[in-house]
Design a protein around this nucleic acid. Sequence first.
DNA 1: ATATTATTTTAGATTTGTCTAAATTTTAAT
DNA 2: ATTAAAATTTAGACAAATCTAAAATAATAT
Lengths: 219, 219
Amino acid sequence: MNFSSSEENYIKAIYHLQQHDGMVTTNELAAELKTKAASVTDMLKKLKTKKLLHYEKYQGFKLSPEGKKLALAVVRKHRLWEYFLVHTLQFGWDEVHEIAEQLEHISSKTLVERLDLFLKHPKFDPHGDPIPDVNGKMEESKQINLTDLEINHIAEVSAVGSQSTELLELLRHRSISIGTKLEVRRKFSFDHSLEIKVKNVPPFTISQQLAHTLFVKPL
Amino acid sequence: MNFSSSEENYIKAIYHLQQHDGMVTTNELAAELKTKAASVTDMLKKLKTKKLLHYEKYQGFKLSPEGKKLALAVVRKHRLWEYFLVHTLQFGWDEVHEIAEQLEHISSKTLVERLDLFLKHPKFDPHGDPIPDVNGKMEESKQINLTDLEINHIAEVSAVGSQSTELLELLRHRSISIGTKLEVRRKFSFDHSLEIKVKNVPPFTISQQLAHTLFVKPL
DNA sequence: ATATTATTTTAGATTTGTCTAAATTTTAAT
DNA sequence: ATTAAAATTTAGACAAATCTAAAATAATAT
């Protein structure tokens, strides 16, 4: 079976959403894909006839096993290409998302496997997310959310929860990137903001919203 | 300006056809793209409004300077990706065409330039075709058509004029590939077939049609 | 329990790229 | 110079993916 880029994007977005929610709703998906609810409904019907998801109208939906398999294949391609862009072509880790969004839809089993071999079977992409293997299996990453990091424990930034330009701009301004070592000095319960310490920089405060999109590996 | 894959395919096909013909006709292009004349007419109108080609109805057409620029950019991407697939990912030179057809439509200037840098600015693709540089300039390849090779002069196969599966199958059967050294022993004027000699193999005869799709560099 | 609000779906329209069949224009042949 | 044939274009239809506006359903709030 072969699927359009659009279908693959829907399947991938559903996969990401159902990691948190279990069941996904029409509006959630519309927001994620920056499209309209009506368009989502249209596509859901098509994906249902292709047996990629379980869907009863007004009831929400989730991927079927075949849908999950497709999602993992797309995620695998996306993350392998990101790894390639950063490690082979010397892109910055914050420049590769949009290009990988295009590359992930190239359809050639052989290409993916040759790429994987050339890259020596990487297990994590430049954002710290695990890369599924040919069978969709991936290592559990030991990263936790920054909001869950214990006070005064040093950790290394390993992933960011979104690749929006706005977020990346803010991170750049704060000189935070993958690999940055930091610790949480205080947690303010009023607005859940955090005081952060990075070496060679005076302590600064970040919002709960920002902390929520950052993942770290405790050292 | 950004263009759809379909538009880029039309522009690229026109570019290739006008290398021979100067002016291109609707049916020629329809045949090249394996589509219908009516579809070609539709697309021509669109490409004309986008100023990519000169076109008066019933009169044939050719690329405008902007069209040529776009064509060369697509050709550059195609050939760079082919080079990458063969030299970096170890594909055979006869396996890469279809994948490169997809990759050539990835739109990211930076990506192309980083790829070019990583590959060390290759001048020719695995089929022996010259790779245009960023400005669309390319080296004149010294290859000539096999039908123009003088009798008893040794030459090396440097390019094939098509990537059709049928042709590649025939070449494989004849054990002819890029780099094969050969010479023409006789030319038969009746059907313009050629008697070919390759080392370690008894002489064999090839049709004019096949000879026409083979390009060689005299040694 | 019913009304209000929010969510989701349907109905109908739009864009892109394609097609078939019919009409038009050009070319070639007598 | 007509006519026949070939090439090209138009007209109208269709599939994919999207949208807006209206209708249907579900959730909620009194």
